[in-house]
Design a protein around this nucleic acid. Structure first.
Lengths: 147, 147
DNA sequence: TATAATATGCATTATTCATGTATCTTTGAT
DNA sequence: ATCAAAGATACATGAATAATGCATATTATA
């Protein structure tokens, strides 16, 4: 029971972009290479996450020379429940059908777990990317000296 | 992001035993074979889960001929948060150390996710095995005609 | 037109969960 | 006593999915 690295990487990318938010346009432009060097990750996976964040319209991506990506919304408009739900995938946390469980018609469990899952996301809903940037200065410093 | 089948099987076993709770001693005695036939599961995995439930003192196991296992506590004393935490393992839902994340010193995320996880378990804490047995009659019927 | 960036699809590897096989230990029945 | 039936235990194998790698297409700019 753990979030995927995929999701984790997505959040780190948003934090990286958020730390630059408000800077000049050309300063904000970040490449996959930047992310990989900063967090010591392989470019393939990051590539896919960036693409996904683009499809979700959380970031804007620019192809071609001098391309890159940047936040498409203000940090306080990017809710954590949405990001995690989307990157993680939103399947039930308990599998009643694989293999099929005979108790299913009389089972109270699936509802309880499903409600618990919603409470988890309800809590995340209270936070946005802006909350992840409380120590923005420190993050900027970390990111500028990493790589 | 999903509970393990291992955990799921554990809960099903408890439901099976709970449906029999209160019956004569020899009626309550259940074997791994019974469980496997009822839920169409392989005995190996169930074996391990039963052993685990025994170590947790949620069930009492009896080796040897005419052995088996049965609930060691009343259903309303078996809290779901405990069962799931123990069977599932209680690691953090986000991995900051694999690979190590440079943002860690200034990261607000791990705390938020950890708190969300606790809210999930806090909710489960409101329920016991007894709550999974609301439709006890129906469950008994299902279990007696399955296999 | 060359180059540097993302986009995309497919292949491979790694990890973890699930399952299988074998054998040991315990206990009751014959 | 011995046998058989049950869980206990250790190790091996298989399956699923996540993570990573590779190749190439597409796009945009200098």
């Amino acid at each position: 029971m753990q979030l995927k690295k995929y999701t984790d990487y997505g959040l780190r990318i948003l934090m990286y972009l958020g730390a630059k938010d408000g800077a000049e346009a050309h300063e904000r432009l970040t490449t996959i290479k930047d992310i990989c060097e900063t967090f010591s990750l392989s470019s393939n996976h990051v590539n896919k996450v960036v693409h996904h964040l683009g499809r979700l319209q959380l970031i804007e991506t620019r192809r071609g020379k001098n391309g890159g990506f940047f936040l498409a919304k203000a940090p306080n408009e990017i809710r954590l429940d949405y990001v995690i739900r989307q990157l993680e995938g939103d399947e039930p946390w308990i599998e009643c059908h694989n293999p099929y469980c005979v108790a299913l018609p009389a089972c109270e469990l699936k509802g309880i777990v499903a409600r618990g899952k919603e409470l988890f996301y309800d809590y995340l809903r209270e936070f946005t990317l802006a909350d992840l940037l409380k120590k923005r200065g420190q993050l900027q410093q970390i990111f500028s000296t990493a790589s």
